[in-house]
Amino acid sequence: MTVKVRFFAGFREALGTDCLEIEEPFSPATVAGLRQHLISNHAGFAQLMALGGRVRAAVNHDMAEDDTPVATADEVAFFPPVTGG
């Protein structure tokens, strides 16, 4: 499983990076499974999630939910609620 993870806005700044490559398998193979994997393996991401703010995700450029499947070669993004307009 190779998944590209991207971060935007406040998440990108808090983590000090806009992109991570995840090589290890995670279970379940969903947005929630990937988020838990990141919490367990990246202290910065764990701290960010511990703040308790709302988190949105996208898989391959489509807005996603916790149970959205994630497969190898997918691009998954995590970001705060959007504020355009």
């Binding site: 935007f8 806005a9 406040g10 709302r54 996208a58 993004a77 970001f79 705060p80 609620p81 959007v82 504020t83 355009g84 307009g85």
Partner: peptide, 18 residues
């Protein structure tokens, strides 16, 4: 739509809350 605003204020730059 994935857009995010960051404002420059007298208290410093901050991301706008939804």
């Amino acid at each position: 739509a994935p857009f995010w605003k960051k404002e420059d204020t007298p208290a410093g730059a901050q991301w706008v809350a939804a």
